[in-house]
Design a protein around this nucleic acid. Sequence first.
DNA 1: GAATCTAAAAGTCAGTTAGACTCTAACTCT
DNA 2: AGAGTTAGAGTCTAACTGACTTTTAGATTC
Lengths: 236, 236
Amino acid sequence: MPELAVSTVIFTLRPDETGAMQLWLPAVKRIRSPFDGMWALPGGPLSEEEDLIAAASRTLLETTGLKPRYLEQLYAFGSLERSPGGRVVSIVYWALVAQNEIADAYECENVSWFAADNLPNLAFDHNLIVEYALSRLRNKMEYSRIAHGFLGDTFTMAQLREVYEAVLGRALDPGNFRREMESSGDLVATGERLIGTKHRPPQLYKYDTSVDLTDQGALPTFSEHSANSIKREKTA
Amino acid sequence: MPELAVSTVIFTLRPDETGAMQLWLPAVKRIRSPFDGMWALPGGPLSEEEDLIAAASRTLLETTGLKPRYLEQLYAFGSLERSPGGRVVSIVYWALVAQNEIADAYECENVSWFAADNLPNLAFDHNLIVEYALSRLRNKMEYSRIAHGFLGDTFTMAQLREVYEAVLGRALDPGNFRREMESSGDLVATGERLIGTKHRPPQLYKYDTSVDLTDQGALPTFSEHSANSIKREKTA
DNA sequence: GAATCTAAAAGTCAGTTAGACTCTAACTCT
DNA sequence: AGAGTTAGAGTCTAACTGACTTTTAGATTC
């Protein structure tokens, strides 16, 4: 029988040297064959008495110390050539963490973070998997509220826009972005303002319903398609 | 280790008593424990030297005689409670067949077709899986050209609209539907007309590029998001 | 403490689109 | 020949999108 494993592509946003937000993800150094010494996605074999998502959550915690706020199944990869040693079918999850939640994550010689657009050669078909996770993230960004997963409980409109811009890879018009977000009904103004900026203090917002963003249970969320969409804008 | 299986939810459209198109799907009678005698989705164990999609395709053919034109991975189901006998992780695919392609499909006491909205109690969590496949089908209908999978090589605008109406479960305005389809650039008029109708003979169309709709390889198609969308219309 | 800088937040405008609807064309059936 | 039917073209309006302008409210500078 093929071996069954779970892996997770987990994204966070952090500023690069220029201060622009970029997608980063952790990889784990392999310590055995095949691909010994190469970087790979965090993961591990599925345990006997464990749901798929529980396995993803556990292996992610064990290998990187991370507990994502958003975790969703991505795809099952099972082509014959993907593992030289022996047949492995991997159920891959993808996840988001806020930058302020990875403080206690491991950062040692066996775990390292890479910019998503500047990855090394990863073990197995993991580069391909990251590509697919990225396309899913970008796509989902346009019709859901997963941006939440990158942010703290409260955030300014500019911070939210920064997330969208970083993930979609293009600038968005601040006024139009605000209009769309406000009309979506997903945001609630807290009444508080962020002080200490060198300009007019911005309103702090939070997401209205305290929907649990974690994809609990094996069952995917059904009605994921909302009218809210961020499309191309030409403002460069 | 958990057992690994593949199953497929395969849809077709056929007219009900009133002539309205409805979604139907085949189920296979189980001949062993657990759920002996109950209807279940076609599928079977993954073979040692076989890609996931190849396994889906093979088990579907073996159990029902069907060769779908469209086959895509749906989800990996792996919760602990889903199979009473022993742990089974199922990688589920979903598929479409045109009605005229199921002529040579088995129709015996062990394979039976059911209306998707009037299913019996299926084995395992298969009712849940069908629900999810339905939601995926409806969603994908709005931004892709999978309607193709239900139709022959050429079709009239009314036939195409009938597919959309049946899947989405609501009437669409013929004029607006035509406008949207024509502006999408996906259709090509063949120049031929369908004769023998009791009214003005309609133009026959086909899909422009001969894109292979079968999801070959383990890798899902990446850029699946097109601008073309069929949304709610109030015409009852 | 007034002028200046910055980004927040509100508002404007034109081009595009979606939905509801009307009208004519082209065939078959009686 | 006239009635029935759907094809297919076209019209109208409200809503939406993207680009842009103006005003507001703080911090910083002089």
